[in-house]
Design a protein around this nucleic acid. Sequence first.
DNA 1: TTGACATATGCCTATATAGGAATATTATTC
DNA 2: GAATAATATTCCTATATAGGCATATGTCAA
Lengths: 110, 110
Amino acid sequence: MPRASTTSDAFNAIAEPRRRDILSLLVAHERPVNDIVASLGLPQPSVSKHLRVLHEVGLVDVRRGGRQMFYRTNAAAIRPLHEWTRTFERYWQHQLARIKERAEANERKS
Amino acid sequence: MPRASTTSDAFNAIAEPRRRDILSLLVAHERPVNDIVASLGLPQPSVSKHLRVLHEVGLVDVRRGGRQMFYRTNAAAIRPLHEWTRTFERYWQHQLARIKERAEANERKS
DNA sequence: TTGACATATGCCTATATAGGAATATTATTC
DNA sequence: GAATAATATTCCTATATAGGCATATGTCAA
């Protein structure tokens, strides 16, 4: 079996770096496709394809305005990812605390 | 071109749901492979392969103990993912605030 | 050393890509 | 309606999977 499809969930969709770039670019304001193309220096068809994936998993919203399509990041869809990573927070804090402890112990020894 | 390799970075590594399960399982305490196999009900070779990917991107650490291999989640490696998702936090808060506003406006109207 | 246990690796297959180029679709303006 | 602009889709290819299964490697115990 191959990997799960990029459109199967947000985790798979954001694995592609360009798509993360797009999400960051579209988070503050909606933008037409051409803006994204110009900002990121990617071929237009490539951008359209990435937007399709992002839209399919709900990471971006679209609005038509004349012949332009205005895309915008749906930040709420990123929240579950944030929550998942957050479940590890106390553990890396533990790690950092232990590192700090050791450093201070070494400090006292020398 | 195919997708970037699962071992190219943490984003690609955690796209696989089973690997996220493994990370959650190994976060509190180290565990031998057989424990993971039993806990998740996956075939042993499958678990070993997932662990290999996770180890290659630094998401787990290993320690040998006799004939067992004790794996443990390296929580610090998840932090960058947390930080990336965090950059969107203020935007979903905006979204929620706007939804709340509208709800209250409708409340006053009725 | 032989066996048993624990884990890792190899081989196989079907499949979903990302990128590139060309072209199709949709909307606007003259 | 024809030309133009903005975006989407299609066709192509090479490639890295995940899963299943068999087997290799490594470690201990008797």
